[in-house]
Computed example of a mutant assay.
Amino acid sequence: MFHPTVARLTYRALLGRRRAMILFALPALLVIIAVAVRTLTGADDTTAGGILGTFALGTMVPLIGVIAGTGAIGPEIDDGSVVYLLAKPVPRPTIILTKLLVAIGVTVAFSAIPVLLAGFLLNGNSQQIAVGYAVAAAIASIAYSALFLLFGTITRHAVVFGLVYALVWESLFGNLVPGARTLSIQQWALALGQKAAAEGAISSDVQLPLAVGLLVALTAGATWYASRRLKALTLAGEE
């Protein structure tokens, strides 16, 4: 279910000059902030948790997910070059799964690893905060990639929809409306990160069993429906 040629083309598209600049800029900013805060205030668990939870997991990870998830297929559909890919004897679910795995790999590399590094810089992984937030970032990367890849198959405005979900729904409504947090990938990921950190170091508004179930359901459902959308696109082109 993994196609090397599709993966290579997807990596090339995601790591092109324009996207690569954004992908590198966000983690670099996080590391710079971590170094500056550690230099100015010293090691502090509360400060570390605030930076990793608010900026890293709340802003950086979903933005990288938007770039990687929508960029894995959206531009090919927009400019029509997806037709050449669909003309190949490759099953449509294989195309979607390959692109999803590439998007996940890119998102994890540019989010979870910098989060881990920033956590060590901020407080030396005291209370396993760095590890906990890195786990949460990695888990969130999977769900974000699946959701935003789906957006790329259903609308030409996938980036806009992704930003609305990441920055408006999760960051705004998620903080103002308690009930909305149950439908937040960030909160689901925090539930797993909470288990990797020391007790009380990380908190989530969603219980672990529910978080795992929702993460699996979203990732599987989004991948399945994206495959159906790609199949429908193929049939429309053939007609």
Rank of each mutant, 00 (worst) to 15 (best):
R92N: 02
L57K: 12
A43K: 08
A28H: 09
G65V: 13
A13C: 03
T70A: 05
L57N: 10
I73G: 04
G42M: 06
V61F: 05
G53T: 09
L29Y: 07
L86P: 00
D45H: 03
I51H: 15
G71F: 07
T59Y: 09
V90G: 00
I22M: 11
T39A: 09
R18C: 08
G16R: 01
L26I: 08
P89N: 02
A25G: 15
G65I: 11
D45E: 15
D45R: 07
G42C: 08
G49W: 13
I51F: 09
V31N: 04
R12E: 13
T94D: 12
A56K: 14
F24M: 11
G74I: 10
V66A: 12
T94Q: 03
A56W: 05
R38G: 02
L63Y: 10
T39R: 04
I73M: 02
V83N: 00
M21A: 08
A43N: 03
S81D: 01
A43V: 14
L86Q: 00
G49L: 11
G42V: 13
I22N: 13
T59H: 15
A72T: 06
I22Q: 06
R18I: 05
V66G: 14
V83P: 00
G69D: 06
G80W: 00
T41N: 15
G50M: 11
P62K: 15
I73E: 02
I77Y: 03
T46S: 15
G74Y: 08
A20F: 15
V83K: 01
L14V: 09
M21L: 12
D44M: 08
A25C: 02
I22E: 11
A43M: 12
I73T: 05
A43D: 06
A20M: 07
I73L: 07
G69R: 03
P75S: 04
R17M: 15
L85K: 01
A25R: 04
I95L: 01
V61G: 05
T70S: 14
F55A: 09
T47A: 15
I64M: 12
L57H: 03
D79M: 11
T39P: 01
L29Q: 04
P62R: 10
A43Q: 11
V37G: 03
T41L: 07
L26G: 02
A34Q: 04
L29G: 15
T70E: 08
S81K: 00
